[in-house]
Simulated assay, not measured.
Amino acid sequence: MYKVQLERMREKLITLRSLDPDLELFGAENHEYEMASVWTQKDITQFEQKWRIELPEDYKVWLLHMGTGGAGPYYGLENPDDGVYAVLGYDDELNAVSAPFQFTEAWNWNYDWFDDSKEEEEWEALEHEYFDPKWSAGMLRISDFGCGISMNLVVKGASYGEIWVDDRANRNGIYPDQYWGNTNRLHFLDWYELWLDRSIHQMHEQKQQSGANEV
């Protein structure tokens, strides 16, 4: 089902790597266009059983045939084992990946986080609640955007299979990924291929600009 898309993406990744020998693309110095080893079906089954989830089919295909981390959007793809993480403000508690994700539309609290009328203890309690793992339940982190922002794959509950952003570190809540101008909800393979297309376009533009400046 996904064979044609995977082959196309392999070719695009090779093209992107050839266009960026100096690792100028954002995050390329981190992943260097390398991919971590693939998983077996047994590895996937063990991961799913451990966390009581079922990974989306297109993501499983990626893990089986492309890799478990490395080259990818922002600072690269994370290994699934690293996608279950300690939550900001809840250092002794992991992201509640085994519980259902609850959102179908962007979510945030309508608070003025710079309101100085509240006591420090009140703000601490609010922040603790804001970062509660229940809000990010059902999300598996797949990429680090930087600045405390994570890209996540919904693996249980509402919006299953979609890519969502956790931007609570900057008080922007949790919302579907539309950073690349897409208005539709992206699933893993389409999200990754859109990154490839945009990155190839960006590198072509940089080379054209560089050539124009040398004339």
Rank of each mutant, 00 (worst) to 15 (best):
H65K: 13
N184Y: 08
E7W: 08
R17Y: 09
P80C: 14
T68H: 03
S199R: 07
Y160S: 03
E105Y: 12
E32Q: 14
I14L: 14
H201A: 15
Y2V: 02
L186M: 15
N110D: 14
E78G: 06
N110I: 07
V165G: 07
Q202D: 11
A36D: 04
W164T: 00
A96S: 14
T183F: 13
F145G: 04
V84Q: 08
A158F: 05
V155T: 01
N170V: 10
M66C: 11
D132E: 14
F114Y: 14
E29V: 00
D190M: 06
H128Q: 12
V154F: 01
E57P: 00
V154N: 01
E54N: 06
Y59M: 05
H204Y: 07
A28W: 01
I149E: 10
M1H: 13
K12A: 05
F188V: 01
A137K: 03
E121V: 15
G161W: 02
L63K: 08
E24Q: 13
I163R: 10
E57H: 11
P73V: 07
E24M: 06
T183S: 15
H31S: 11
A106F: 07
G69M: 01
M35N: 10
D43R: 08
R17T: 08
R185D: 01
K12Y: 00
Y85V: 00
F101E: 00
S159C: 00
G148P: 05
I53T: 05
W51G: 04
D81K: 15
E34K: 14
C147F: 12
V97G: 10
D177W: 10
Y90M: 06
I200V: 09
N213R: 13
A212D: 02
Y90E: 08
Y33N: 03
W109I: 12
E205N: 08
L77S: 12
E120G: 11
E127N: 11
D43I: 01
T183V: 13
F114G: 14
I174N: 05
D92C: 10
I53A: 03
L194K: 05
A28K: 02
G173T: 09
Y175N: 10
Q209T: 03
R171S: 08
E127P: 00
M151C: 07
Y90I: 02
L88I: 14
K12C: 00
Y75R: 08
H187E: 07
W109C: 14
K60F: 03
L16N: 01
M9G: 06
Q46V: 07
E127G: 06
G89I: 06
Y33H: 05
D167Q: 10
D112C: 13
